[in-house]
Write a protein that binds this DNA or RNA. Structure first.
Lengths: 124, 124
DNA sequence: CTTGACCCTGACACTGACGTCAACGTTTAC
DNA sequence: GTAAACGTTGACGTCAGTGTCAGGGTCAAG
């Protein structure tokens, strides 16, 4: 299939696919006229990339998963490199959550000082 | 005082001060040679901006606080517009925390599927 | 033959808060 | 007198993942 069809089926733009290629995540054979030609396996790669991106991963993070799929594994997570990315991401998310909780407390403190009673304490 | 002194006392770079001015947050008188001249009140403005930025506010968010100080109030939060920004920010932070908790759960789920026992459940 | 739907590459736009450099004028200290 | 340290404006670089042109080529249907 060509880029337009893959884009529709994967739910992304052709522009995004070219960008993924440029970043070294996917590759495409070229037909005689220079058009990119994709396989079903490529659809699987792009689907994996998309699901990772929507969970907050970067394209860089997604690389091990793509490599894992290309190596023949069923899931992109079936490789130690992918698992390592999962663990790192989990730690990053935890850090962000902690930082946000601190910020929340600071802002809530300021707000209650500036306007006692304004804090509705939605959480907990 | 000139820009270098204000920058040192406020703990920011001269570049940042020029940027704040460009964004309409601070203003400076000019001496005959074109140098910016600041007052103690300006130091207070910049200090307010910095403390808001470090809590995750944008320069746009900081504008009502600066306006409030310029209007003569002791605290930048002594105006309804500032309080409104506080409340909005609090809601934004809560949204971000909720989104991160969802992401955390998704990633943790994927990780436990890919590598049972890898999730160390640091939280709770 | 031409219209329209594709495809190509290359490159700028965007968001935020600056860092950094260029190319220049001013002030201060020795 | 001169060099360091300061000031000025202007403009590009950063990070990520595209959107959106510009300016082409390709191909099937009518």
């Amino acid at each position: 299939m060509r880029i337009g069809e893959l884009a529709r089926r994967a739910g992304v733009s052709p522009r995004a696919l070219r960008y993924y290629e440029q970043q070294g995540l996917i590759r495409a054979r070229r037909t005689a006229n220079g058009y990119r030609e994709y396989s079903e396996a490529d659809l699987k790669l792009v689907t994996e990339i998309r699901s990772l991106l929507t969970v907050g991963f970067t394209l860089e993070d997604a690389k091990p998963f793509v490599a894992c799929l290309r190596a023949g594994h069923e899931s992109g997570a079936d490789c130690p490199e992918s698992v390592e990315v999962y663990r790192r991401k989990l730690a990053e998310i935890d850090d962000e959550i902690r930082a946000l909780l601190v910020r929340r407390a600071e802002v809530a403190g300021q707000l209650s000082t500036a306007c006692p009673g304004c804090v509705l304490t939605k959480r907990e």
